[in-house]
Nucleic acid binder design. Structure first.
Lengths: 165, 165
DNA sequence: ATGTATGCAAACCATTTGCAATGAC
DNA sequence: GTCATTGCAAATGGTTTGCATACAT
């Protein structure tokens, strides 16, 4: 009945099978990381997963989070994105598919939304010698906030420190 | 007459004005880096710029290449891309606009092409509270090479070392 | 003359790795 | 019991920074 519930179950099954097929072990750490990740509706960082687990008093090393995330990527459960400004985000692949990203080249903020109406268009789109599974559309430009803040440009000239995270 | 020539001139002018407006100096290093970059028709790495200048017996420090590239980014002459697999590429903005990227999630290879027919479509596309300057379309999937090489999957299980560069 | 840009080397920081200890099978 | 996985700490590598020197203005 509950679609979110069945979706998570499907993911869990996919991950279990992935581990089984590769003869990889089903450990408490991998389980905890998977559970944390499977609940995300928005993009997340590796650190946020680690932090949240620590907050729940479940200790995992950063290295294990990296390792497990690599498995989740390979199992096609999550997707990794590296933005122009250096930010690295992960996202459930189911949530990442067919998304539109608006990236402001002034302030580096990223906004995203899903646009179902693009599905049809890209289902028909020809990609020679390539079998697409999903797509992302990135628009680079100026957000309305920056548009109306002309001074921004001057503030930004020595901008490196601001940019990261 | 020669469109490539005028295009490069336009870039040079844009860069000069950028420097002048910000009261930044016009140095031999910045000039050499700009000249190298302005000729690129394909995406390039920071290292390739540095290496090519060294090969021409023009010595610049890596730090200066980083600095200048930051200026070129800010001047909107070049664009930076970070792919999911960690590869960082730069590209002339004029060459980067409205491009389609095909990214293989198995082997991490990136192919790109330009599709003029998308111009029309995206000129009309509504981006709420955002003023787009250019877009990129990323398709994630399997390239034909990987499609027909089933063993790939097994080879890749311990894949980290292969992935980077 | 003045103060910005450069080069170098050291610092940084996210990510990876090596290895001994742990625990899944 | 065996061998993969973990945690820790050390290593790595791309990028940034600090500072003395060089040079554009």
């Amino acid at each position: 009945m509950n679609s979110l519930h069945t979706e998570k179950d499907a993911l869990k099954k996919a991950f279990s099978e992935y581990l089984k097929n590769r003869k990889l072990r089903h450990t408490a750490e991998r389980d905890a990381i998977f559970k944390n990740v499977a609940l995300k509706k928005e993009p997340f960082t590796l650190d946020s997963v680690h932090q949240q687990l620590e907050d729940e008093n479940f200790h995992v090393s950063r290295a294990s989070v990296y390792n497990t995330m690599e498995l989740l990527l390979d199992a096609k459960i999550v997707v990794r994105r590296r933005f122009e400004n250096g930010v690295v985000q992960y996202e459930l692949r189911s949530a990442a598919e067919e998304q539109v990203y608006l990236i402001c080249t002034e302030c580096n903020k990223v906004r995203k939304f899903r646009d179902e109406s693009l599905d049809e268009f890209f289902k028909r789109y020809k990609t020679p010698k390539f079998y697409p599974e999903y797509f992302s559309l990135y628009f680079y430009g100026i957000c309305s906030r920056c548009k109306y803040c002309v001074n921004n440009k001057d503030i930004k000239s020595k901008k490196k420190t601001i940019d990261k995270k």
